[in-house]
Design a protein around this nucleic acid. Structure first.
Lengths: 177, 177
DNA sequence: AGGTTTTAGTTTCGTGTGCAACTAAGATCA
DNA sequence: TGATCTTAGTTGCACACGAAACTAAAACCT
């Protein structure tokens, strides 16, 4: 159908002419894309481990780790600490509860929420998975040149902050459209 | 609300006691998690821009950019270059074609595949979005201290390689289970 | 007190996704 | 040439997701 002409421009890196700077936008150098690639590769690889062992997914894993770290907290707090939407938390909690990995106890002082915590078997699973996960993260991080590691961690911190800012800015500009 | 119970263990870096090293596994310091957070924040923020403007999602965006970069290529090549599953490519291509942003031309020499390329209106959209996206990436990257930037980019390259290796290793060990 | 607003959490609903099965076309080898 | 294997791309299916609606309980007002 559309017959698309010849290769368009010769892919020369001549800086162009039109009013705008025609930076090339190479996908493989484009930061948001690169972040997505590395995140999804790492996440997928790790999740296969706990999916194989215990049949849980990323949201359940995050709930498990958060409760393993803090011991007892509400769903809201779990969501805040693990950057998860409340529906995701709700469903992950429901599954983990069905599998008897976590328990709930109503908060007598506020019946809307309940306190979640690991059951003994949930904790056993957590203690099985945690060192495996840490080892995975360690092997991943070891790929980075030791003298780049500090800079890298700093950079990630900055990027998390900034992307949250940009996200909020865009949401704001959208509201006022 | 939940003010984070007592510090659990003193977070001392004492090298252990039980057979295993009892490193704490704090989610907020856990590399795969951190990568996911920054990637999804950045990706979501950026995608809102092109979703608002042209009603396309991430897969369509990637196809658009890839074709903008290479001019004319097969779906397979698009998928390889943009790290996308062939079904994702297929559906993104179908949508973009329906919206007349890209065109297909059968490859007379191999009828299984066809060559994809931007239509003039597709290219116009690409040329509208590309500078916006580049500006977004620039503002994002500017959050990183200039003297950390090189190290950061190197680190991401290494992590992409390593996470692909780990992913393959895990898939392999799973096959032989 | 009683009415409104906010909040924690669940459910519904439309959509996106990956896997596996499938189709159609090439490649390979006899 | 025909039989088998591989490959490019599509589709069916089951499931995961987020937005929005909803429920029940607090919080906030006079």
């Amino acid at each position: 159908m559309i017959d698309e002409g010849p290769p368009e421009d010769g892919a020369a890196d001549t800086p162009i002419g039109r009013g705008e700077l025609a930076a090339p936008l190479k996908l493989e150098q484009f930061l948001p894309y690169r972040l997505n690639v590395v995140a999804s590769l790492a996440s997928q690889a790790l999740s296969r481990i706990y999916a194989d062992r215990y049949g849980i997914g990323v949201p359940e894993w995050r709930v498990l780790v958060t409760l393993g770290q803090f011991g007892m907290m509400t769903g809201k707090a779990v969501g805040a600490h693990s950057h998860m939407h409340k529906t995701k938390v709700s469903r992950a909690v429901a599954l983990l509860e069905k599998r008897k990995m976590i328990g709930r106890r109503a908060n007598r002082a506020d019946l809307r929420e309940s306190f979640l915590s690991l059951t003994p078997s949930g904790r056993a699973i957590y203690e099985d998975l945690a060192p495996i996960a840490l080892n995975f993260a360690k092997r991943l991080a070891e790929a980075v040149d030791p003298c780049d590691r500090e800079a890298f961690e700093r950079a990630i911190d900055r990027l998390i902050d900034r992307s949250a800012e940009l996200s909020a800015e865009i949401a704001r500009s959208r509201r006022g459209s």
